[in-house]
């Protein structure tokens, strides 16, 4: 994409297919939404679930870094440039954790699983977090943070 020299549309699409297949597997075989925030909360024992449910959630959560590690190992490393400021990471993390629980989902549960079934809740949630995310980045540039 000449206008966007840093974009990787093909890798993005292929990686997206893998994410979608992972969510489809979870739905059709396990009968559950592959919503990462919900599964993480379940793994932490923060939402009502039996021990079997918790084990399932823990297995999914453990798979995330292992899957990423496998790709990093086989491709000779991956770019992952984090904000330099630890306070930004911690504040961001807190808001992500609290917000995804209050809003019952994140980019995976609402943005992928919910949008794909045209859930009204997920459409509203996705438009909302996209909008406040865009606004936050725009404001952070204006204020000179994270430039």
């Amino acid at each position: 994409m000449p206008e966007y020299p840093h974009a990787v549309p093909l890798e993005g699409f292929l990686g997206g297919l893998l994410v979608g297949l992972a969510a489809a597997l979870m739905l059709l075989v396990g009968g559950r939404i592959a919503g990462v925030s919900g599964l993480a909360a379940r793994a932490l024992g923060l939402s009502p679930a039996g021990p079997a449910d918790r084990g399932t959630a823990l297995a999914f959560v453990a798979g995330l870094p292992l899957g990423a590690l496998a790709v990093a190992q086989s491709s000779g490393g991956l770019a992952a440039t984090y904000p330099a400021d630890l306070a930004t990471l911690v504040l961001g993390g807190l808001l992500v954790g609290y917000g995804t629980r209050l809003g019952s989902g994140c980019t995976s549960g609402h943005g992928i699983c919910g949008l794909a079934r045209l859930s009204r809740r997920s459409v509203v949630a996705t438009l909302t977090f996209m909008a406040t995310g865009i606004l936050t980045v725009a404001l952070s540039h204006l204020l000179g943070a994270n430039a």
């Binding site: 993390g93 992500v96 917000g99 949630a125 406040t132 952070s140 994270n146």
Partner: peptide, 20 residues
């Protein structure tokens, strides 16, 4: 739903990270 998604978006924009 709306308040939670709005807060999540702010955190997402700050850190560049969502849960996955």
């Amino acid at each position: 739903l709306v308040a939670g998604a709005a807060l999540f978006g702010v955190g997402w924009g700050l850190a560049g990270l969502c849960p996955g």
